[in-house]
Amino acid sequence: MDTLVAHSAVLIIAIPLLAAFLTPLISRASEKARDIFVITSLAFVEFLVIILAKDIYLNGIHIYTLGASSPTLTIPEHYMVPVRIILEVDAMSIFMGIISATVSLAAAIYSLSFMKRETGGDRFYILLLLLVAGMLGLEFTGDMFNMFVFLEILSISGAALAAFRTRFADAVEGGFKYIVISAVGALVILFAVGIFYAPNIICST
């Protein structure tokens, strides 16, 4: 249980991402298995978010370093600068994380009956799980680089979901407007990340 809490920050992002790419394989077996798999993954994410919230409530901000020998080791052993991907989960992040995980679990349960009337259910669940991975990653990330990456995952899968029912002209038009606005916005954010980063480059030389 302690190991699960220590690694829960990265598991919350990794489980929907892996489940998104396993979903088409499992749906080759049967659609029932696919539905159970999607709901189980999202319910496990919800469980991890709740135990992480309890840990943050008791012990304060939770920091996870990817690729380190210990998850709390933010500065590498032999280098002077922290050149690592770091997840920082504070109380605000986990508050939004609880909302995201709960709403996405509820949306997936609702989609079970809704998608019976539609075709292309595999692709719908892939996009839904990618949306959840991008949303939770955007909330839990600790640096601007990964914030941009997760923002783009979120906006691409969100726009594809908005235009999912492509037989309606309205859905496609709304999806196109969404992707244009979010692409321009994400590029402006990337420009801002560059401006934000420029003093560090000059100071470190």
């Binding site: 680089f145 941009f148 990456v149 726009a159 235009a163 496609v172 196109f176 992707i179 692409a183 990337l190």
Partner: peptide, 20 residues
């Protein structure tokens, strides 16, 4: 990373244009 993401965005926008 930005180049790779830009290709995905452009492909999605052009596919939506085809449908439009």
């Amino acid at each position: 990373t930005s180049i790779v993401i830009g290709v995905a965005t452009t492909a999605l926008m052009l596919s939506m244009l085809v449908l439009t």
